[in-house]
Design a protein around this nucleic acid. Sequence first.
DNA 1: CGCGGATCCTGCCTGC
DNA 2: TGCAGGCAGGATCCGC
Length: 281
Amino acid sequence: MPELPEVEVVRRGLAQWVTGREIASAEVLHPRAIRRHVPGADEFTARLKGREVLSAERRGKYLWLRLSGAEEALMAHLGMSGQLLVVDQDSPLEKHLRVRVRFEDGGPDLRFVDQRTFGHVMVTPLVGGVPEPISHIAPDPFEAVFDEAEFARRLRARHTEIKRALLDQSLISGVGNIYADEALWMARLHWARPTHTLTRPKIDELLGAVRTVMASALRAGGTSFDSLYVNVNGESGYFERSLEVYGRRDLPCSRCGTPIRREPFMNRSSYSCPRCQRRPR
DNA sequence: CGCGGATCCTGCCTGC
DNA sequence: TGCAGGCAGGATCCGC
């Protein structure tokens, strides 16, 4: 479940191992991996051949490699189980290898491996430095262009629950189920709290919690609990041990000792402390 | 038009 | 042991 910190770990790995290298060839091993690349697999591989990787960039959970020549990028979304691995070209092909990129220098491949196939990759134009398909995505809270007043205004204009809003990438990007639960616990907010009832100071507190939790996860190299999320070298992060509520049903809240509850939410789970995070009436 | 629910997909885990 | 069902969930699509 890669969210912003996990994707940032991957981006850093790609910046280190892939930038400055020229793509020799690309191979699509599963068509679903490029389903958002409308012109299809042959066009995808043709667009990549001979291009140099100029930089690795990210907004929210999306990352992309800027390419030489036309203003285009190889963009990736990891979905639930996607991995971008930098592995020796001679290493055995992974069971769930979807796209393989080889380089002119004969160095390690870039491989997109994705068990559950929710992730995807595509070649896309850059518009103002951002991939065209994600122009509707809001900046993430670590970007300089993230506007707190604008976020607060748009949040309060919504008629929905706070957790739904946090997961809405057009309002704030990079937050997924794990860090939404963690930030809400830190800010002592119940997930069902109506957005229009939040005060500006409370919104700022929540935003601070989102940043604190994500920055902490990034320092730990990301979160992993089923080994599906790994950095480009296949290594897992250590943030799981720092989680306060996510996945901790019936375990004591570290603030008050009350057992953490799990509730169904949007066809998945929401974890919270029944005492610290009172359900709105 | 805004909101909320269904859907996609595979492997692991649990319970019968 | 084997099998069925639950669970994980980001983004997109669709209906109200």
